[in-house]
Amino acid sequence: MGAGKHAGKILILAEDACAYPGADATGQGHMSYSADTYILRVKASVLFPEQFYLDCFSKGIAGIIIMSCGAETPYPGAYEALARRIDRVYVLMKERGLDIRRLRLTAICTVCTRAFLKEVQQMQDLVCQLGAPGSEAAAAPAGAAKALQEQ
């Protein structure tokens, strides 16, 4: 790890009913993970528009993990709507030359400590590998990097 360790910040959207307590359980177990992670407690991630994710990347967030409740969401239909939105975000990310693996949609339960750690570790590894958001844009179609800068 070493040098790559602080490759960029990871934002975690943790839903209040499941993933947020899941992160708490990870803490109670003193299971260490990257400190470059910032958890936002949210009621339902379906609240965020496509632009929010793009803005986060242009602000310098290197990776985003949406830790939803999956099908166990207290808001019937929210997960499906969220999944459709994330598909659209992926399209927009591609247009801007952003590696779509920087955004991950997953479901974490209140005691899913290991799944939590795994997700964080995977994103951490990916961010180390990719570097700052937009740095992969060089390899992307022409105009993508420009589009990103214009955000």
Binding site: V42, K43, A44, L47, F48, P49, F52, K59, I61
Partner: peptide
């Protein structure tokens, strides 16, 4: 749940106590 928040082109609708602006300023 905020499903409405995400789709408003004007950000004219928000969940009280959990607004989009609040989250953006946190980021």
């Amino acid at each position: 749940c905020g499903a409405c928040v995400a789709v408003c082109p004007e950000n004219a609708i928000n969940v009280q106590g959990w607004t989009l602006k609040q989250f953006e300023s946190m980021v």
